[in-house]
Design a protein around this nucleic acid. Structure first.
Lengths: 226, 226
DNA sequence: CGGATGCTACGGCCGCCGCCGAAGCGTCCG
DNA sequence: CGGACGCTTCGGCGGCGGCCGTAGCATCCG
C-alpha cells in the first residue's frame, strides 16, 4: 500500500459527515463515550460503534475502557492539526486569528468536564505527585495522609459521593495525565473560588488570573511559560 | 452548510484514490494537463475530467486554459499543507525530518519540467524584469533587445523551435511567476552547465552550489537567504 | 439474581459514486 | 477545409458503504 493510498484511506474516513462530527466533537481534547459521540454524530449507537471501530483501527482515535463505558479521544495532537488544516481549506472564513479559534488557549488551560486539563492541569498533577500528596497509577490514584492534610488546608476537600475519588485522565494536548474524579473537581472548584482561574465564554478554555499566577507559583511551584 | 459539513466534503474529495493521486502529482507545484493527470491517476481521461471538475469546483485546484490544453495546479499553498498534514497522520513513518521530505528544499529551488521554479526561479524572473531584459504579462512574455544581448553574452540563447519562446508560469510555493518556455529551459540548462546548480536524486529539488551562490549574486544580484 | 444500561456483531436495504464507452465541441495544423 | 487531438458531457453499469433493526455480551445496581 503506497503513501497515496494510505492518505486517501485516512481522508475517506474524514469524508463521512458522521465521522467528521465525531472527530470535531473530540477536537478540544475531551474523552467522550460511544453514546455521547453517537448523539454528536446524529446517528444511532450501532452506526456510531462501527464508525468508532474504523477510526480507532486507523489510529485516529484512542479508546479506553472504564467500567461499562468506552471513552474515545483523539489519538495524537497530529490528528487535531490535520483536522484544523482541512478546516482552513474548507472554511469560507479563512483568516481566523491563529491556527484555530482559541487553540493555544485550550492547550494552556481548559476544563475537562469539571476538572482542569491542559498544561495547567498536568502541572498541578505533577506538583501534587512530586510533593507526595497523591500517587497516580495507570488505573487509579490514591491520596496520601499528607495529601489529605494539604487538601483540607487548601480548602479543596472533596465532598462525599459515589463517584470515584481520584483517577488519572490522559491529557490530549500534553499526552500526560491530569487529575480527574471528585478530587479533580474539588481542586478546580477551589481554584475558581479563589479567583485563580476564570472561565471563558463559549469555550472550555480557562484563563489564569494575576492572582492565579502567584497562587499557583506559591502553593504548587507552578510557573507556566507563556 | 456547517463548518463540519464543508470539512467532510473536502475530505471526501481527497478520499478517492484517483483524486488523491491527482493532487499529489501536483504537490510539487507543476501545472499539468488533464491528460497527464488522467495518466497519473490511473483512470481514463473522461473519468479524470469529472474529478478535475469537482476539484476545481471546490477550489482545491485552479485551471488555466492554454490553447487546446487545460493546465491544472494546486489552488493555494494551504492545499499542499493540508495534504502534507494528512500524510503526516497516514504515514507509517511518523518522524520525517521537517514537515515533508525535502519540502523546504523544493520551495527554495526546483525544476518545473525543464526550467527553474521555487524561490530561485522567481528571483531569476524578477531580476531579468528589473533589468529590463524581459517583460512578463499575464498571457505571455517578451524579450527586449538588451535581453537578447544579455542572453547571448550569458550563453543561454534558446535554440530555435516551435515551442513558445517565453511565457510566465505561476509558481506554486511563491505565488508569483517564473519563466517557462524555451527561454526558461535555456536558462536552466546554462546554469547546470556552469555548475551553478545541481540536480538531486529522486527529487525535483535542485541545490545551489557555492559557485552558483556567487554566480547568481554577481550576474543577477540574487541572494537567497537560507 | 434480574433488570437496566452501554457497547458491539450481523444482516439486509438502498443510495451514492466511481468507472468507462460513445458522442459532441473547441483548437491546432497541414 | 478535413483530420487529429484534447477535453467535456451523457448514460448505464456495478460495487462499496452508510444506515438501522435485531440480537448478543459485559457491566452496574437494587
Amino acid at each position: 500500500m503506497s503513501d497515496i493510498t494510505r492518505m486517501a484511506a485516512v481522508a475517506a474516513l474524514l469524508g463521512d459527515p458522521a465521522r467528521a462530527r465525531i472527530l470535531t466533537a473530540l477536537l478540544d481534547g475531551r474523552a467522550l463515550t460511544a453514546k455521547e459521540l453517537s448523539f454528536a454524530a446524529h446517528v444511532s449507537p450501532q452506526t456510531a460503534s462501527g464508525h468508532l471501530a474504523r477510526l480507532t483501527g486507523a489510529a485516529l482515535l484512542a479508546a479506553e475502557k472504564q467500567g461499562r463505558h468506552r471513552y474515545f479521544r483523539l489519538a495524537a495532537p497530529l490528528v487535531g492539526q490535520m483536522l484544523e488544516s482541512i478546516m482552513a481549506v474548507a472554511g469560507p472564513e479563512p483568516p481566523r486569528t491563529g491556527t484555530w479559534r482559541g487553540g493555544e488557549a485550550l492547550r494552556t488551560a481548559r476544563t475537562c468536564y469539571d476538572h482542569l486539563a491542559g498544561r495547567l492541569g498536568v502541572a498541578l498533577a505533577d506538583s501534587l505527585q512530586a510533593a507526595g500528596h497523591v500517587a497516580l497509577a495507570a488505573d487509579g490514584g490514591e491520596v496520601t495522609d499528607s495529601g489529605m492534610i494539604f487538601l483540607r488546608d487548601f480548602g479543596a476537600e472533596p465532598p462525599p459521593g459515589k463517584r470515584v475519588y481520584c483517577r488519572p485522565c490522559l491529557d490530549w494536548s500534553e499526552r500526560r495525565p491530569h487529575i480527574a474524579g471528585r478530587l479533580g473537581a474539588a481542586l478546580a472548584n477551589r481554584c475558581l473560588e479563589l479567583g485563580w482561574i476564570a472561565r471563558q465564554r463559549d469555550s472550555r478554555a480557562v484563563t489564569i488570573t494575576p492572582g492565579g499566577e502567584s497562587g499557583f507559583a506559591g502553593r504548587f511551584g507552578i510557573r507556566l511559560d507563556r
